[in-house]
Amino acid sequence: MCPICGERDYTEFRYGGDATKPRPSRETADPKVWHDYVFLFDNPKGLHREYWQHVLGCRQWLVLERNTATNEPGESRLARMDVVTCEGEPK
């Protein structure tokens, strides 16, 4: 489900990884913060929030809620509306 284009086949989308991890700010110089951001995953069995891009559609990046134990999709929002910044505040 794309908030712009409506219900679409999953083949139009591309998975883009875990969306629960806040991207460190550009100034962050602590390699451990970057390491954890790039390399570690909660990888939960159950509810998960993740990035998808509607590559064959509007090219928007989305944040989709999905249950990884059943693949049942939940709500999807435009990533730009949903991002957790490094301060933990949704923009």
Binding site: R14, G16, A19, R23, Y51, Q53, V55, R59, Q60, W61, L78, A79, R80, V83, K91
Partner: peptide, 13 residues
């Protein structure tokens, strides 16, 4: 292209 879009839409709004 995807990478630029990702950064612009998720980090550098």
């Amino acid at each position: 292209m995807s990478w630029l879009e990702f950064l612009l839409q998720t980090a550098w709004m």
